[in-house]
Design a binder for these strands. Sequence first.
DNA 1: GAAATTGTATAACCTCAATATATACAATTA
DNA 2: TAATTGTATATATTGAGGTTATACAATTTC
Lengths: 126, 126
Amino acid sequence: MNINISNSSGEPIYLQIANQIKTLIMEGKLKEGEMLPSMRVLATELRISFMTTKRAYEELERDGFIESYTGKGSFVKAQNLEIYREEQLKHIESLLTEAGDTARKAGITIKELHELLDLLNGGDQT
Amino acid sequence: MNINISNSSGEPIYLQIANQIKTLIMEGKLKEGEMLPSMRVLATELRISFMTTKRAYEELERDGFIESYTGKGSFVKAQNLEIYREEQLKHIESLLTEAGDTARKAGITIKELHELLDLLNGGDQT
DNA sequence: GAAATTGTATAACCTCAATATATACAATTA
DNA sequence: TAATTGTATATATTGAGGTTATACAATTTC
């Protein structure tokens, strides 16, 4: 598996790993049921502590992308696209809620919010 | 001036002060041109370092609510409502932009975003 | 002009959460 | 049973955020 980590990126290593694997899964380059490299093997490849790869895998497990079994390994789960969409939706909801609350305090109408939303995201969306 | 600080609130002291003064200004209880208590006087009242009150006043100055002059004091500025609205608008813009970006990645349409916005903010807005 | 009062600037300290690690343990496989 | 895999607990390390101390500069007051 091809993972690249950068020390200068500012992004924590465990997130770099988790995000790259997420992308691989989303793009279909890692398929349902497929086994990931063991935490220790990947850690050795990347020359980092395997606790950091564990942290990355925990992140992926928490987000529903993989499942791990002691003694066996870690495997790609199904339903990723749907789960991912749900999560992003929740994130979006919290953003929109905060936008609404802020608008209310500042006397900005919901209508203006809609206009802003279009303005900021171009008219040519699907 | 009546400022209350709580150690258990989790919110930093300098923000507690700044936010309470913001509210006083927004409510018209502190009027344009009016002098605020000096940083040291307020600090003594609240039994904290005056660097913390300075931090609070810096926050207020940064946000356009007050102006400070060495040797003279700190004074409430005009135009607060307009400036406040502009700032909140910027904040909202960044939220909506992130929402749009997230939606794009997850294959969620702008139309759905609009629907969510209404759903989350009730129909009875002005 | 001197003393008092006001705000400014720089640096130091403290704390806490996040990150990364080491090491011992448990389950499965070969 | 030896090797491999994931788990759990504890321990640095680091960096940002918050608070403070102290020295400095401008204005006011007398």
